[in-house]
Nucleic acid binder design. Sequence first.
DNA 1: ATGGCCGCTATGAGCGGA
Length: 255
Amino acid sequence: MKFATWNVNSIRARLDRVLEWLDRVAPDVLCMQETKVTDELFPREPFERRGYRVMAFGQKTYNGVAIASRRPLESTERGFAKHCADPGCRLVAATTADVRVVNVYVPNGRAVDSPHFAAKLEWLRSLRRYLDDVARPTEAILVCGDFNVAPEDRDVYAPELFRNQVHCHPEERKALVEIAEFGLVDVFRRHHAESGLYSWWDYRLGAFHRNWGLRIDHIWASESLAARCTSVSIDREARKGKQPSDHAPVVVEIA
DNA sequence: ATGGCCGCTATGAGCGGA
């Protein structure tokens, strides 16, 4: 079983690239972020033609998350307003392929000295409270998406440049650790220890060409599920070519 | 090869992304 997460940076702008990728990689489940579209305008048909069900939770212009799955999407949840003061269209959850999938798009935070950064920290803390309330670490659960946090310096192309900056600030890294302490494993890091492996590269300055990137897109799994992971990869191919997203998909194979 | 920002909007400049 293949589960993937990808910040597509507008599903309508990226539709051809996403469909081409689905046809090539054929994941069982694809979690998308930054769909930037309301639910009635989400392009469901091409997914359904390929045998995927789609669950979308979006808004105009910004944010937006969606799950496409070849298996039924059950016990669906849109957002977590009960647990978060300002959730946005940034979390969607469903049980599919016998896994509880929580798909998140964590706020960017913009700058450490901005109120948006405080809101990001609060959002991350809310996610932990949400997990405590609705999930159990003993179940098969995946929490994946664009976390907008590089967990460690090996996830950053220039750690000294990003020291105490947004994506790398100790406070957000701590909030991420606290989410992990619910009982989740960063499955990418369980399979790959080296630095230089990223999931996002700026569109500017030939950043992808220079591998100036960050690993901010993650798949976290409960221990029982992590134990079934046979491989985890970042598909850099999807960042190449014409009109790519600035993020690459992360794919986990589960036995 | 994979380059020089991109996508969005009661667009035509400004905002947000990361």
